[in-house]
Amino acid sequence: MFEEIYSAVQKITFAPFNNLSVKRDDLIDPYISGNKWRKLKYILAKAEEEKKTHLVTFGGAYSNHLVATAAAASRSGLTATAFVRGEEVQNEMLLLCSLFGMQLIFTDRESYRDKQKLFQQHFADDEKSYFIDEGGASPEATIGCAEIIRELTETYDHIFCAAGTGTTAAGLLKGIQQHQLNTKLHIIPVLKGGSFIEDEIVQHTPLSDHLNLHLDYHFGGYAKITPELISFIKNFTSKTGLLLDPVYTAKMFYAIFDLQKQGIIGKDEKILAIHTGGLMGLFGMRDKF
């Protein structure tokens, strides 16, 4: 199911942004979109190589990763189970997971912390089950994300990407290093204290001067938003027609806007923003708009 695919690069004309293009990975697939497609591509290849037929993964109630894994499993003739963090709820995301055939196991937050233990408790005797970490974090995922750089037909002074775990960031940095580019990679952690992402990246590829972490655009932490960010999203989308999710991509675009306003990014420098999809996360924020 993971055939070769190249997402379009779209030039954005929207003041005050200058020389801004967007790699539209959000258009890859409606359910396995963006970096979720990139991450799962080689994870599923490894599962198939090991003759696994049951995918087991983890996420919150509004996890795009859970929807992507459920869709990928059903299209590949596999079964899937997800440990869902927190109390039992019903929402649009989990409905999609169920429709794709995924079994949902709601798990208290303390037990959820030890994912390997949960896997062992439920599936230790099942040789066909394959462990996929939260968000798809894995060496295989970084290989898929590195392919973003290979697909580019132009060079850029700066590439921007939002980050939660650092897996996509590691793949992008690896791709820049492999292709010996001079491009600066700007990572926007969406959690407070996002400096830990460097530790995650170094597990997959060496750090270099290409990497820049910007730690001040989390807007309060993971899945936290402010009236300022909401206003930015509404204005950006109404003027460009490009949807942003409040958890990741909106914070990335705001960071680009702010860094250009400060003069840290020059107005004539070419910028590429990676749209990592995840737009169904908007459902979890509908009361904020």
Rank of each mutant, 00 (worst) to 15 (best):
C161M: 13
Y6W: 13
F257V: 00
R150T: 14
H210S: 15
A82S: 09
G86M: 03
I197P: 15
L185S: 15
L104V: 03
F283M: 07
K288A: 06
I143C: 04
Y62T: 05
I264L: 04
L259T: 04
T13P: 03
A70W: 08
A80W: 08
E151G: 12
T79N: 04
E49S: 12
K234N: 15
E92K: 15
T13Q: 09
N91Y: 10
L272F: 02
E151V: 06
M93F: 11
K288F: 13
I143W: 13
K41A: 02
L207I: 12
Q10W: 08
A47W: 07
A170M: 12
L282H: 15
A146W: 10
P16C: 05
K23R: 11
L94S: 09
L259V: 05
K41E: 12
K23Y: 09
F2D: 02
N64W: 00
I230F: 09
L207Q: 15
E200L: 08
I197C: 14
K261Y: 01
H54D: 01
T237H: 12
R113C: 00
L259P: 09
Y6C: 12
I197D: 14
Q180N: 13
V84S: 08
C97L: 00
N18W: 10
F196S: 11
G194V: 00
I187T: 13
F119I: 02
P16V: 01
G278V: 05
A15R: 14
A73T: 03
L95M: 09
H204R: 11
Y62D: 01
D133C: 04
K52Y: 03
L173S: 14
E147W: 10
G277L: 05
D216W: 10
Y6F: 12
A255K: 08
Y222D: 01
A255M: 06
L44D: 00
S63H: 09
K51C: 09
L118W: 11
N91K: 10
I271C: 03
A45V: 00
L40K: 09
T240I: 02
F106P: 03
N18L: 07
F58N: 05
E269Y: 02
C161P: 14
S21R: 14
F236C: 05
G241Y: 06
H204Q: 09
L259K: 10
Q120D: 14
T155S: 04
